[in-house]
Amino acid sequence: MIRKVVANTDVALDGIADGMTLMVGGFGLCGIPENLIAALRQRGTRNLTCISNNAGVDGFGLGLLLETRQIRKMISSYVGENDEFERQMLSGELEVELIPQGTLAERCRAAGAGIPAFYTPAGYGTEVAEGKEIRMFGGKPHLLEHAFDADFALVKAWKGDEAGNLIFKGTARNFNPMMAMAGRITVAEVEELVPAGTLDPNAIHVPGIFVHRIVQGTHYEKRIEQRTVRPKNPTI
């Protein structure tokens, strides 16, 4: 077995330097690598390009790195929940590239699957298509989109083992598996780090070959963005 365990989040981020491109897993605040984001803030690395579906909220998720101006450019599909983000974007401090969510997912997947580019119908006829090759398949126009190239991928899983195998829970899976596959160096933080042989090999979502470093997360706030509930005892 090849061991991937590192001692803590600082060691896990070793090698991340100013100006690098990072993938950061999660959808909204669901399934984000909150311990690695906190460590990255401590580290103070700057001029980062972050590929992440969203940009967190004020004071949590990637919002923490926006506060400290560590991010130079965001590549996302939806960024509507963050006032500081909007301020930096409108003032020109932050560069933002918005791309369709399925294209974002597939550009990650392609990177992890050794596919340099692919065609998708999403965005044809819109400003997303500007400057891109268009080709007809089955009478329908498609855009040529390229795989991402990220120096590091920071992902979060529910469980992981010493060999770097990962299992996700609920909708916290989202972009994490494809980003894990895509990073030149992939760092996974997990809620529960277990010895090899503990996880059922049939149940592994991401094989350890894609994970270079795995670390036990020490604190999970797991903030909920929109708490929506039904009353427990409805009056009839």
């Binding site: 399934g31 797991k222 929109q226 039904r230």
Partner: peptide, 16 residues
């Protein structure tokens, strides 16, 4: 139901 929200189970609108 109230009290049974799971941060790991949301929809695309980020609602539990």
């Amino acid at each position: 139901f109230e009290g049974e929200e799971d941060a790991d189970l949301i929809n695309a609108g980020k609602q539990t």
